[in-house]
Design a protein around this nucleic acid. Sequence first.
RNA 1: AGGGGUGUCGCCAAGUUGGUAAGGCAACGGAUUUUGGUUCCGUCAUUCGAGGGUUCGAAUCCUUCCGCCCCUG
Length: 368
Amino acid sequence: MKSAKVAVALSGGMDSLSALLLLRERGFAASGLHGIFLPEALRPPDWLERLEALQRQAVDLDFALRVLDLSADFSRLVIQPFVRAYAAGLTPNPCAACNAAVKFGLLRRAALDGGSGWFATGHYARLEERADGPALLAASDASKDQSYFLALVPRESLGRVLFPLAEHAKSELRAWLEGQGVSPVQPGESQEICFIPGDDYRALLPGLAKEQGVELGGPGDAVLPDGRRIGRHQGLWRYTEGQRRGLGLAYSEPLYVLGKNRRENTLLLGGREEARGCGCRCGRANYLVEPAEWPATRLARIRYRQPAAPAEVKIVPDGGLDLFFTELADFPAPGQLAAVYAQESGGLRVLAGAVIESAVNCGLTGPA
RNA sequence: AGGGGUGUCGCCAAGUUGGUAAGGCAACGGAUUUUGGUUCCGUCAUUCGAGGGUUCGAAUCCUUCCGCCCCUG
């Protein structure tokens, strides 16, 4: 019997390599699919060497490797919206956008069109085929779970997708790879897949904005909720709601960013208690489960690594979502992702994802 | 010019009878981490506005000078 063909998105890191090898062990005919995402200007100096190393590894480990240049699409679908979002006073989540549009959009399409029956990635998340379609669930290991970043992926794009790492722990995989004498081309964490060199978006953004002809905005006043001026900010795009460090403003207590007033170009700051919110309004949602089928109890996360917390979720007529947390949570950052979950016996299932538009003031002092 | 107050790390601020400089903020470094953030850990004044004196020993006592801040002219 001919084994099923699966194309695995390979970044060069250990997760995607493990995914490929695991699938092969399970009997799949696994090939690699490497998407070049970064436009030339943002590629690290040794990117070509790394690509060649990946190609050699494919030969060594005996799998086919296809390389696809998606850099123009990545720029259009991820980088440009990222820059525009910051210019608009938002805090974008490019990884979520990339998953939705590029990895599970273009790359998956290429895999399936290329003759593979399945598309796989090295995400730590679970996918189950149900009667009503694919169900996206959090990974078994909650500390590694990446389902949050996948909440904007359209349901159709999760069809014919496999997450081989779902039940595995990273440490276990690392040992497993070592046991086979295999080491990934990129040994460190998969930070290089990001288009921000050195993780410093503040250093990169002005150049990108200039290229795109986008105005980011300059310095202005930093004010407390009572209107008191306590210093200057260096441009609203440099801050995000909930941020504490890097404000450069000394005060008797730690200060957090509560909001941005773009009209006045002021940054609103407050103490720890004020930096907690209870809800937010989100834009049009990506539904992974029809709202009619949602259980009565819902959980939500509005930032990565925040545990899913009980929340009241209302669907607004225009397709947006209103979230209210039962308990005070971290301050919502517009532009970031809200993911709605349901607790099932087998784990947390993603019901929907949406982009946060604004924080809702529930009696606390908040941004206007 | 008189009267009162005050001067401790970049900022806020403990330091009561002299005993050999708390803490918070910021900053920096690290841990965590496929965004931004959060959180956690660590490092940060041989010196207390300046000079002189008393004392075994002073940021704390005395003295002179300087700088701010109020109030009254």
